[in-house]
Design a protein around this nucleic acid. Structure first.
Lengths: 201, 201
DNA sequence: GTCTATAGATAGATAGAC
DNA sequence: GTCTATCTATCTATAGAC
């Protein structure tokens, strides 16, 4: 069942892996097709033999990265020995191992630069690989959400809030949360909020 | 004391106000100097008589917008008749009246496209006009923060989390929180978190 | 299948006439 | 002070030789 990889397939994989590095680091708009070709060690037009356009390369990369994301979230959910808070802490740690500059620069900031069809596809991949697996975590019986929050809303909010925590801009206003322990502390703030809840609103 | 405005000063104001509209809507990178000039009804090179470069126009706009932001936050803080939650709700509402596409597209996404000097200045303005006034709210004696959160951290987290809530990308995964009441609900999630806190961690 | 060459678009910024 | 014309750089994508 192991198929020999043709030269074309090898080059295609090389392009995808090179593009993965650059897109994860700089996002869609700031990545040029020459950047990708340079990392791959081919000329820029050669890329167009393997892909229709830049968008097709990006969406294939999102598909590959997304599968890894789904995998690490799924592994984190299925660790019954760990407390729920330690499990979600491990999930976010693995999420940022995959996205060195955060999820936002890779997914959210790319959206506006895609064609309408590309935007629909990106939305689909984001839901399938990021939101749905995290919804699985918040659906665990031992994870207690605040009563007005639905599991898929919690997943969405968590990813967006994490974006914020790991933004490089986070430091420009002076020393801030990112200079302290980014992991556990940030996560507690997102999960449990920043303020004391008033007795009755 | 009322000084007559010269023709040059009027044109400069016209450019700033035109740029303000476009930068708030599209952010720094997606705004071209021709966009600004078109809105102002002048040619693109004419802009360069009044400003050294695109960055100078942007930073002047941030300064103007920032003053308005400081103003609405300050007004919100000083409303002792309102409950704290209603006050912060009013503050965020006014914040998004000023930023129709959210604070992120105007401030945070612009950062990477500026010169080092511009980045330092933007960081300074962001702290002065956004973070410090909000820190004032979280310093109010009647606002109770969770014990591990400092007031300036709370300010930073609030702005970043609000970014997320109002991102246009927020909808692509299907119907989500943004289709419900964006205001009070989102704010409660940021302030008080999404999860029930475990009895002891 | 990959290359060189280049088309075609758009960006920020400058030169110089008026 | 504003204009027309243009420079320079960069980008995505294509044409066509090899």
């Amino acid at each position: 069942m192991v198929q020999e990889q043709s030269r074309s397939e090898k080059t295609r994989e090389l392009i995808i892996n090179s593009a993965r590095k650059v897109f994860l680091e700089k996002g869609y708009a700031e990545t040029s097709t020459r950047n990708i070709a340079d990392v791959a060690g081919i000329t820029q037009p050669a890329m167009y033999h393997h892909f229709n356009d830049k968008e097709a390369v990006y969406l294939e990369v999102v598909n590959r990265v997304g599968k890894d994301v789904r995998e690490v979230i799924g592994q984190g959910v299925l660790k019954p020995r760990l407390q729920p808070l330690n499990r979600i802490d491990e999930i976010t740690k693995n999420l940022f191992d995959i996205h060195p500059k955060g999820v936002g620069i890779f997914i959210h900031e790319s959206y506006a630069h895609l064609s309408p069809a590309g935007q629909r596809k990106l939305g689909m991949l984001y839901r399938m690989y990021y939101l749905d697996p995290l919804t699985g975590y918040f659906n665990l019986p031992e994870v207690k959400l605040r009563k007005e929050v639905l599991p898929d809303e919690a997943a969405d909010i968590l990813i967006y809030s994490l974006n914020a925590m790991f933004s490089s801009f986070y430091r420009i206003g002076g020393q801030s949360i990112s200079t302290r322990d980014k992991g556990k502390l940030s996560l507690r703030l997102i999960l449990f909020g920043i303020a004391e809840e008033p007795d009755e609103q």
